[in-house]
Amino acid sequence: MEEMVCIECPNGCVLTVENKDGEIIVGNYKCKKGITFAKTELLSPKRTISSIVRTVFPDIPVIPVRVSGDIPKDRIFDVIEEINQIRLDKRVGRGHIIIDNVLGLGVNIIATSSILINT
């Protein structure tokens, strides 16, 4: 039996994970998110990441972005590399897609602030 910290919410439950004849048994969770988390974490761990992109606007040199959904943990730095290439020259708002389907992972890089349009 393995222990695993669930990162789905601030509770940070210490889950127990057991592989019983190919079936994954999760224990010690406070909510169902724990079960999903443990299973994914064992098979193909996923994470959310946030970063910033450079803009061409001197008043707002960078704006915050994040992935619209979880990405495989082992692709984090590949995605960051894509974000690093961007230089934003349009005043876009919160939710605007900055990179569509990044690296074919099925998620977008979206702006998480409207500071460029609300200044």
Binding site: I52, V53, R54, V56, V62, N84, Q85, I86, R87, L88, D89
Partner: peptide, 10 residues
């Protein structure tokens, strides 16, 4: 310096 020094014009 610039944290996104690799950025380029889109």
């Amino acid at each position: 310096g610039d944290i996104k020094e690799k950025s380029k014009e889109l």
